[in-house]
């Protein structure tokens, strides 16, 4: 990564975290409609993978991939207004949280059904290649989501078709209350990919540079016509499934262990110690982040709710 990219990565990591801290404030003030899902401790995965994409590549972020939206040019206000169900949100209040997208930005809006995005992104990659387009489709899956039929069908299809698709598995140890040990009889998700003859590697998901470098390798592989690639990012879900869940079932020592591996702390430290950045340079980015969050939080608060006429609730199902 160039110096400029490193600084940019720092900015996005901090923006991702600050955005969620602001969302938490909104949540405590009862301004969030529905649940609040956090990516605390997993930010390096979304930011690192999305930064590795080329502009023509497409990404389908899931609920914990706020960072990928930011890298793709969405602003904090887009997530604030989505979570607050405002008329100014990207879906104009029709759908919630990260359920939005825009083909112009190469962002596919996810559905809740886990695994569903995998076959879809196989199709994005395959369909693009059929038309001579250089485009890789990248999406994410949780450890729990790897038990779905769509995960297995999608990977198998990607493999036999050699589709340019990259799947990033975020192994954050839990699927709601279910630890990986009760979800599957293997410890590493890469073993799933191996069954489909898909090259796979384990990555330290809390190391932004490692995530970025692995994603570059994965994309290069997919782009060169050799088929899909699978990354398993080891990480930890540092909050409950959503904020309403106190996650009592997570052993305190496990959280303690992973707190020491916080991806932002580690990255900042490397920037200062290994890459010669100054504290002022980082503080400058922090100020940019704070300013944008403040501005966008205000925008979201000021934004109206949809009026809510029946015709408004009804329209838009078909093109015409």
């Amino acid at each position: 990564m160039t110096g400029e990219q490193l600084l940019q990565a720092y900015y996005f990591l901090k923006l991702n975290r600050a955005l969620e801290e602001q969302l938490l404030k909104f949540y405590m003030q009862n301004k969030v409609v529905g649940g609040l899902y956090r990516s605390l401790g997993q930010e390096a995965i979304s930011v690192g993978t999305a930064m590795a994409l080329e502009p023509q590549d497409w990404v389908a972020p899931l609920i914990r991939n706020v960072g990928a939206f930011l890298v793709r040019g969405y602003r904090p206000r887009d997530l604030f207004t989505q979570y607050m169900a405002k008329a100014t949100s990207p879906t104009a209040g029709r759908d919630c949280n990260t359920h939005f997208g825009d083909i112009q930005r190469g962002v596919v809006a996810p559905i809740s059904m886990l695994g569903a995005m995998i076959p879809v992104m196989v199709g994005v990659g395959w369909g693009s290649r059929l038309q001579g387009l250089d485009r890789v489709g990248l999406t994410y899956i949780g450890d729990g989501g790897t038990s779905t039929g769509d995960f297995h069908e999608g990977l198998n299809l990607a493999s036999v078709w050699k589709a340019p698709m990259v799947l990033v598995a975020e192994h954050n140890q839990f699927a709601y209350s279910t630890p990986t040990s009760k979800q599957m009889a293997i410890t590493d998700l890469v073993d799933r990919a191996k069954a489909y003859a898909i090259p796979a590697e384990i990555v330290d998901g809390n190391d932004l540079m490692a995530v970025y470098a692995a994603t570059r390798r994965a994309l290069e592989h997919a782009r060169s016509g050799r088929g899909p690639y699978f990354l398993e990012c080891k990480t930890m879900r540092m909050r409950g499934h959503a904020e309403h869940d106190d996650a009592r079932y997570v052993p305190a020592e496990l959280l303690e262990e992973w707190r020491a591996k916080d991806p932002i702390d580690r990255f900042s430290q490397r920037l200062l110690e290994e890459f010669g950045f100054s504290q002022e340079q980082l503080s400058e980015q922090d100020q940019r982040v704070a300013k944008l969050i403040e501005e966008d939080a205000e925008f979201a608060e000021r934004s109206p709710y949809p009026e809510g006429s029946r015709s408004q609730a009804q329209e838009g199902v078909f093109a015409s």
Partner: peptide, 12 residues
């Protein structure tokens, strides 16, 4: 139409 999210829309 699908069930909309925002409370006013959902109510409508």
């Amino acid at each position: 139409s699908p069930v909309p999210f925002s409370p006013n829309l959902e109510k409508a």
